[in-house]
């Protein structure tokens, strides 16, 4: 198990290094100069030069790459060109929204999807199964921002029980912050739950045809106990894979939902960074997301091994 984890860790670090290089090169290549964006139409050439020097944009490319990577290793993510505050601080503020948002959506989608998937598999082929699965199919097809608009309309405009967006900040109002996250979490969770329910159902169906299920029933276990102890447990691997992918998506891919609810999350930080050519913010946040995604994948791998002892020996 330890050897398994160690090998995974080495692979993980190599991926990170490769990612840092790709991110850096891509952002060097795209057109647009941060100083021009900040100073606008009336800027004089000497003003632009002064600002470029101030932002440290004049150093050679290789020096800037090495400095950036070394800085990150020491926990220094650089200073935002536009905001003039440390990038680490910005990310720190944003993660306070993105992390609860992603976690909340993941938990909610799991709570909705697992029972529905199991139920559907159990009544496989019955009307109720067909009904649930067609709703799930539609749930997958509907984009989350449309659900978001609908939720805002019902709960913020018609019923006026929840805010239409914004985020007061945890230390200002914990209660208000929770409130602010309800609609976005629901909007994010519903499509994810639809996917997860389908995966849960089909994985469980596969398992239910295995011989050991018949054996379990034959040795006298009840239908229910067989289903949960031998069925669901063995069906969890594909579900975990999807959960891992969904978490990575939820942490970074929520920019549309963040825009709709004007939540200051990581997705919006990156989006704003790109439009304002605040490249240091983009580089460092994307790097962080890559690291997070790799870390989650690593955790999922480890979890596989925990669920299925056979995998530990296979490495």
């Amino acid at each position: 198990m330890l050897w398994f984890a160690f090998l995974r860790l080495i692979g993980l670090l190599t991926t990170l290094l490769a990612a840092s290089l790709v991110i850096f090169v891509v952002l060097e290549v795209i057109p647009g100069d941060p100083a021009e964006v900040m100073l606008g139409l009336n800027a004089q050439p000497d003003t632009l030069a002064a600002l470029r020097a101030e932002l440290g944009l004049n150093a050679p490319v290789s020096t800037r790459y090495v400095n950036w990577v070394l800085g990150m290793l020491q926990g220094d993510f650089g200073i935002s060109y536009t905001y003039s505050v440390p990038v680490a601080e910005l990310i720190g503020e944003r993660i306070q929204i993105s992390l609860p948002l992603a976690t909340g959506a993941l938990i909610l989608s799991t709570i909705i999807a697992i029972p529905i998937g199991v139920y559907s598999a159990r009544y496989h082929g019955k009307i109720i199964d067909t009904g649930i699965m067609s709703v799930a199919q539609i749930g997958i097809a509907i984009p989350n921002f449309w659900i978001a608009i609908l939720l805002v309309y019902v709960f913020a405009i018609v019923l006026r029980v929840l805010p239409s967006g914004g985020f007061p900040g945890w230390e200002v109002s914990f209660f208000g912050s929770l409130q602010a996250l309800i609609l976005p979490v629901v909007a994010l969770a519903l499509p994810q739950a639809s996917i997860l329910a389908r995966v849960m159902r089909s994985a469980l169906l596969d398992v239910l045809h295995e011989d050991y299920i018949r054996t379990a029933r034959a040795k006298g276990l009840s239908n229910k106990a067989t289903l949960w102890r031998h069925g669901v447990r063995n069906a969890l691997i594909p579900v975990l894979t999807i959960l891992g992918l969904q978490f990575s998506f939820l942490i970074a891919g929520t920019v549309i939902i963040e825009n709709l609810f004007y939540l200051p999350g990581l997705g919006r930080l990156i989006f704003q960074g790109i439009t304002q050519r605040d490249l240091i913010v983009v580089k460092s946040s994307v790097m962080l997301l890559v690291a997070l995604t790799i870390f989650v994948t690593f955790l999922v791998d480890i979890a596989y091994a925990a669920i299925d002892p056979r995998l530990r020996r296979r490495v």
Binding site: A156, P163, S164, G165, G166, Y262
Partner: peptide, 18 residues
């Protein structure tokens, strides 16, 4: 001063009284 770049969100924020 609140920053709302999405026109739909701006509409919802105004009409709901936020």
């Amino acid at each position: 001063f609140r920053f709302i770049s999405d026109p739909n969100a701006a509409f919802a924020a105004m009409i709901s009284g936020d």
